[in-house]
């Protein structure tokens, strides 16, 4: 597998579920449960932040590739809705 540009959604989701998994396993082993409100809000915030970060990164990548294509004199199809 080659190294690629960071996938920020994957990072946010990965950290979220790693933390949740560890917390759940420790909580189950010790007989307690984390507050559901914190779990739900944390999950939504992490996924939303990851999605935003991924969108911003994709937009910047698009602009960068468009600029490089312009320097080479090539056409780069841009997305008018981006």
């Amino acid at each position: 597998m080659k190294r690629h540009e960071p996938d920020w959604f994957s990072l946010a989701a990965g950290l979220l579920f790693t933390v949740l998994g560890v917390v759940f396993a420790v909580a189950a082993a010790n007989g307690w449960a984390p507050d559901g409100r914190w779990v739900a809000s944390g999950t939504l915030i992490a996924l939303g932040a990851g999605g935003i970060a991924a969108s911003v990164a994709a937009s910047r990548r698009e602009q960068r590739q468009q600029a490089l294509a312009g320097e080479r004199g090539e056409d780069w199809p841009s997305d008018p809705f981006a």
Partner: peptide, 26 residues
């Protein structure tokens, strides 16, 4: 079952963390 689910969840999360830079696992 809860411990099992927590461990599986952590493994999936670590895989996605690796996928940030290598491969795709989102």
């Amino acid at each position: 079952p809860a411990i099992l689910g927590g461990v599986v969840l952590a493994i999936l999360g670590l895989g996605m963390v690796v996928g940030t830079w290598y491969g795709r696992a989102r």
